[in-house]
Nucleic acid binder design. Sequence first.
DNA 1: CACCCCCGATGAAACGATTAAGTCGTCGCT
DNA 2: AGCGACGACTTAATCGTTTCATCGGGGGTG
Lengths: 328, 328
Amino acid sequence: MTKRLAEVAKKAGVSEATVSRVLNGRNGVSEATRASVLTALDVLGYERPTKLRGERGRLVGLVLPELQNPIFPALAEVVTASLAQRGFTPLLAARTIGGVPERDYIEMLLDHQVSGVVFAGGSYALADAEHGHYRALTDRRMPVVMVNAGVSDLGFPHISTDDAVAVEQAYGHLRSLGHERIGMVMGPEDHVPSRRKLAALEGKEIQVERTNFSMESARLAAAKLIDRGVTGMICASDVLALGSIRAARRLGLDVPGDVSVVGFDDSALMTCTDPPLTTVRQPIELMGQSAVDLLVNQIEGSGVEPDELLFEPELVVRGSTAPARKRY
Amino acid sequence: MTKRLAEVAKKAGVSEATVSRVLNGRNGVSEATRASVLTALDVLGYERPTKLRGERGRLVGLVLPELQNPIFPALAEVVTASLAQRGFTPLLAARTIGGVPERDYIEMLLDHQVSGVVFAGGSYALADAEHGHYRALTDRRMPVVMVNAGVSDLGFPHISTDDAVAVEQAYGHLRSLGHERIGMVMGPEDHVPSRRKLAALEGKEIQVERTNFSMESARLAAAKLIDRGVTGMICASDVLALGSIRAARRLGLDVPGDVSVVGFDDSALMTCTDPPLTTVRQPIELMGQSAVDLLVNQIEGSGVEPDELLFEPELVVRGSTAPARKRY
DNA sequence: CACCCCCGATGAAACGATTAAGTCGTCGCT
DNA sequence: AGCGACGACTTAATCGTTTCATCGGGGGTG
């Protein structure tokens, strides 16, 4: 058995040094050689030796888009607990408005020699942003799991709520209450879960407004929808739903009397809102645990196919939806 | 310049391998040799080469009691952003019910060679638990900052909201509304911020109930208070306040018509609750930044006196308080 | 057009830590 | 005493990383 790195080097027809550079994402390697090294790496199924794998570190990056929306702390809690149980420690990378760009976070995590990374929250950056820095992850064979996130073409396993089912539940609920003009308050155009939700209702007559994920921006979007005569709104998150409720009230309308609102997530405290929010629950605990399972499996070597695990959401009916009022 | 590890080995009169083992905490080294290696390490001021620690410093532990109460994610967000700006990365240690004990967390953080630790949330464990594992921190001269937390006798600097002012604001507010029988829903007996709040109202006639920090336990506590004729309640967190509101409703009472409730924190979404919560706001952003300031100052060497920084809270009046109804 | 300089890409070799295998001595049991 | 087992330690092999020299081409310059 020849030396491990050397073997790869021979296969690729380069020196060990060059392979090392590729592995660490250093520059000073031409695009052509980098590619050939990567395929050689792939063919031989190279794995980093224990000592460099951060086996000692047992750190895992946890990348969240924000912490204002309670669903993300909830996920963080599950993931943290699950990781701790298996002897890993989460490195928290929460993006903030105007904060550090995602690429820097990834770099930071790589610097700290994390054994893996959990991305959560379908940050829109994941969809449209240049994928350069994700390649740094694939190049290093970094175990990655994405929760409700985009970028499906990188070969990472995904954990997602079934957006199609979720949105159909919400839509069906509103229809069965007699709502005919239904609107959606979604995330940005390149937010993958929002895209999927829209796709699921393809063909139905639906008004759509996009927002970033702030309550205020949701208020604006919802106001526009109401202006167009919408009586039922499906929102891409609970926070957006709360913003939509606020919009209705600003216009002198009652929720759920005049306008019905359905949220998404069923994050904490939604039973305490005014009115209690009807929402589609994500099985966040299960999802968090599965994410950790998948990640640890990758880390410990047992291969994982880059599949997507779809979890079934569940409609929770509370007080923000009611039969449509006939408009005369 | 001789090889680095080899130099230490010569100084200590052992082989490189042995030094390596000491460095990595492996066993198979006698106590005597370990000690001599350590002194040699100390004398020569050995530092691990870059490639092995990957800038392993620059980690900061962030210890939170839970993530369900939105105030902690809010703090985490501020601290994370502030740390990132200065090139540090937070290691998240969130305690969960029945999860890993605090001592293990501290051990874990030390294992990862963090440069400092931020404790938040006045976990009651901090007050009564044996302080043995905190000694591990002082022993290592570990920079520490505590936010709203206990254990004042260990020489760590503190960042706190002025609990006395907070509770006086709440109390004054309720009194000025005509409430005479006032109750408090506080944390466990050894929760330091709760103690302080109680101390501030020493002498006043106040009913007190203790809870852990769950909404359900608050509901029970509040029910007892209401039973005793209380019409105004001061709660140690917003979540407890929501539980108290729920208690009142279960008893067929209106909030704020029959019972007024004041929260504490002003965490996210409290404008959306039913009714919107009157609460005492903690300047969480300022506090988080100050915490990081203090911590980084310690880390970078400029000494910091183990003082306590007290931040002024601010009463935010919303809809959960109203004039007392005369009881006939 | 010839020359030179600069710079990116690359490999050879030095480097530095880790680990496997082997050595030595001591302790305990027969 | 003899034997075996085990712990402590070294030797030597191992493996990835880094430094430094080299190569080669593009483009500006005389």
